[in-house]
C-alpha cells in the first residue's frame, strides 16, 4: 500500500525528491489525484499559519491522543517538542485524564479540543464561552478545523496502520516519551 520512489506516480514524484516523504504521502500516492489536493490542504491546516506552532501542536497531540492514533501521537510529539513544549507537557496532553498545562488560554483551548474531538453533539455553552474569551473568531474557526483535520488523519493513519518512522522513535526514546 505504501509506494516507494520507484513506484511513485508522475504527479506524486515531487514529494519524493528530497528522500522518503513518509508513510502518509506514500499511502496517498496510490491515488495521486487525492494526494494532489489533500497534501496541500493538510499542510495548510496543520502547518505554519497565523497561529503559533505551540498552540497548534497542543491541539494536534491532544486530538490524536483522544482518538488513539499511535502514528499521529508519536509523530506530533516530536513536532511538539520542536515547537517548544516540554516532555512533561507532551505527557500531560497524552494522558487520560489529561493534566492542565497551567495557563488560562491553553486550558480553555484544551477544553474546546476535548469537547470537539472527544464529545458528541454541540459543545457545552460554558466550554464555548471560555474558549471564545481567549481566542478571536478567526482563531476559533482555524483551531476547530485543525481538530477536524487531525481527526480525519487520526482515523486514516490508524485504520491503515501507518508505521512510525525509526527517526521518530529515536527522538521519542531520547526524550523519555516511549
Amino acid at each position: 500500500m505504501l509506494l516507494d520512489a520507484a513506484a511513485a506516480p508522475l504527479t506524486a514524484r515531487p514529494y519524493y525528491q528530497n528522500g522518503d516523504p513518509g508513510p502518509l504521502v506514500a499511502a496517498l500516492a496510490t491515488v495521486p489525484e487525492l494526494l494532489e489536493v489533500s497534501l496541500p490542504f493538510l499542510t495548510t491546516v496543520l502547518g505554519a499559519s497565523s497561529l503559533d506552532a505551540r498552540t497548534k501542536e497542543i491541539v494536534i497531540v491532544r486530538t490524536s491522543a483522544l482518538l488513539h492514533c499511535v502514528y499521529c501521537v508519536n509523530s506530533h510529539s516530536v513536532v511538539a517538542l520542536d515547537s517548544g513544549l516540554t516532555a512533561a507537557e507532551v505527557v500531560a496532553l497524552r494522558d487520560e485524564p489529561r493534566a492542565a498545562l497551567g495557563g488560562e488560554r491553553e486550558d480553555a483551548l484544551l477544553g474546546w479540543v476535548d469537547a470537539v474531538a472527544g464529545g458528541n453533539g454541540p459543545v457545552a455553552d460554558a466550554v464555548a464561552a471560555r474558549f471564545g474569551r481567549s481566542f478571536a473568531d478567526h482563531e476559533v474557526v482555524e483551531l476547530t478545523l485543525l481538530v477536524g483535520a487531525t481527526m480525519m488523519l487520526n482515523r486514516f493513519c490508524t485504520a491503515l496502520e501507518l508505521p512510525t518512522s525509526p527517526a521518530v522513535i529515536d527522538r521519542l526514546t531520547a526524550a523519555g516519551l516511549r
Binding site: 509506494l3 520507484a6 513506484a7 511513485a8 506516480p9 508522475l10 504527479t11 500516492a29 496510490t30 491515488v31 495521486p32 489525484e33
Partner: peptide, 24 residues
C-alpha cells in the same frame, strides 16, 4: 501493477485524467 506512470485512479469523467495529463 506498476504505478510509476499512473495519472489518476479516476477515469470517469475523462476530463480528470485528461487535465492531469495535459498539465504534465
Amino acid at each position: 501493477l506498476d504505478t510509476d506512470l499512473l495519472l489518476t485512479r479516476t477515469t470517469d469523467p475523462l476530463r480528470v485524467p485528461a487535465q492531469t495529463l495535459l498539465g504534465l
